[in-house]
């Protein structure tokens, strides 16, 4: 999930950052594919796309959805990093928007795929929620 923050450095063209982007995206692929391949039985699509768990005590699902947005929001917390280092970038007019947009696109596609993959793979949701930080 953190490859979002990594890709913001992509425009630097450093081997360090290229390595980081490639590795984090590979990790995402490896983990998603492994989980989907190994898990059985899969959750039905009605669970993945049609179930809304609300154990928060709020009666309104809308409020639960809106307060729950805070966790996905953390993923994009570092997105302003590309702007802060704009002064050091060559051809910043081109490369900073590129960094921001690519971060958003890669981040959205990979984390959405990851989330859906994990939702199909999970077996006992109650056990996951039972963890101390769940």
């Amino acid at each position: 999930m953190s490859h979002v923050s990594l890709t913001m450095k992509q425009w630097e063209k450093g081997t360090d950052t290229n390595f980081a982007v490639v590795t984090s995206l590979s990790l995402f692929l490896v983990i998603t594919v492994t989980c989907l391949a190994r898990s059985s039985p899969k959750q039905p699509s009605s669970f993945v796309w049609g179930t809304f768990n609300n154990e928060t005590g709020w009666s309104s699902t809308g409020i639960v959805f809106l307060t729950g947005m805070i966790n996905p929001n953390y993923i994009f917390a570092g997105i302003d990093g590309a702007i802060h280092v704009a002064e050091e970038a060559l051809n910043a007019a081109k490369i900073v928007p590129y960094a921001l947009l690519s971060t958003l696109i890669i981040g959205f596609v990979s984390s959405f795929t990851f989330g859906v993959g994990m939702a199909y793979s999970v077996r006992d949701w109650a056990e996951v929620l039972d963890t101390p930080t769940g």
């Binding site: 898990s39 994990m118 793979s121 999970v122 077996r123 996951v128 929620l129 963890t131 930080t133």
Partner: peptide
Amino acid sequence: GRLPIYEIWVQATKSPVAATIF
């Protein structure tokens, strides 16, 4: 204190070793 994502990976891969490595 297990992490939720660790729990998901244990359930999905059926292998605590794989989940720990992840």
